[in-house]
Simulated assay, not measured.
Amino acid sequence: MNAAGSEATSLHEISLHMANLRAHWLAWGGSDSIHEDLIVYRSGLQHGLLNGVLRLSGRSVPEAAPEAEQQLADLPWRWWVGPDSDAGVAGALLERGYSRIGSMPVMAVRLDQMSEPPPPVGLVIECVDGPDGVRDYVVAYASSFGVGATLQNLVVDAESSLRTDLGRLIRVVGRIDGRAVATSAVLISRGVAGIYWVGTDPTYRRRGIGAALTAAAMAIGRQHGALVCTLQASDMGAPVYRRLGFTPVSEVVLYSPPLRP
Score class of each variant (00 low, 15 high):
V128D: 14
V89D: 05
G245Y: 14
Y204Q: 15
R78F: 12
L21E: 14
I34N: 08
Y196G: 00
V147M: 01
Y141G: 00
Y137L: 02
I34L: 13
R55C: 10
L26E: 09
V147F: 08
A64H: 04
A182N: 04
Y41F: 15
V128E: 13
R242C: 08
R55K: 15
Y196W: 14
G208M: 10
R110I: 03
I101M: 03
T203I: 10
I176Q: 10
G58R: 06
R175M: 11
V128I: 10
L38Y: 08
L231Y: 14
A27E: 14
G44S: 08
V109F: 02
D112G: 00
I39H: 04
V147W: 03
G122Q: 13
R205K: 10
L93T: 03
G194A: 07
E7S: 00
P248H: 09
G146D: 15
Y137A: 00
V186D: 05
L154N: 11
L151W: 13
Q113L: 06
T247W: 11
G88Q: 13
Y141T: 00
P257D: 09
I220E: 15
G221C: 09
L54H: 03
V181E: 10
I176E: 11
F145T: 00
Y41E: 09
W28G: 01
P258K: 12
E251T: 07
A193D: 11
R242P: 07
Q70W: 07
D201H: 15
P248D: 15
I176Y: 12
A217W: 07
T183P: 02
M236E: 15
D32W: 03
R59N: 03
M218V: 02
E251Y: 08
Q70N: 10
S160M: 14
G191D: 11
G167W: 13
H17C: 07
C229F: 11
A142M: 05
L45Q: 05
A68Q: 03
I220W: 05
I176C: 01
L38D: 14
T183W: 08
L11A: 01
G130F: 12
S31W: 08
S43T: 03
D129H: 07
H47F: 13
Q223T: 14
M107I: 12
A27D: 15
L162V: 09
Y241I: 05
T200P: 05
V89H: 05
A193N: 07
S6G: 13
P239T: 07
D165F: 08
D86W: 08
R243E: 14
E116A: 00
P239G: 05
G58F: 12
L213Q: 04
L151N: 10
T164F: 06
P257H: 06
L169D: 07
Y98N: 01
Y204D: 14
M107L: 12
L231C: 06
R205N: 08
R206T: 13
Y41N: 04
V240A: 04
G199S: 11
I39R: 01
T150I: 02
S184G: 13
N51Q: 08
G210S: 03
A3L: 14
G245K: 04
N51H: 10
A64I: 02
G221S: 09
P117F: 10
G146K: 02
D74H: 08
S115E: 15
Y137G: 00
D84G: 02
W80F: 06
D84P: 07
P261T: 04
Q223Y: 12
E63R: 02
P117G: 01
R110P: 02
I34K: 01
T230M: 11
G167Q: 12
R163G: 04
A73P: 06
E95H: 13
R78V: 09
E7A: 00
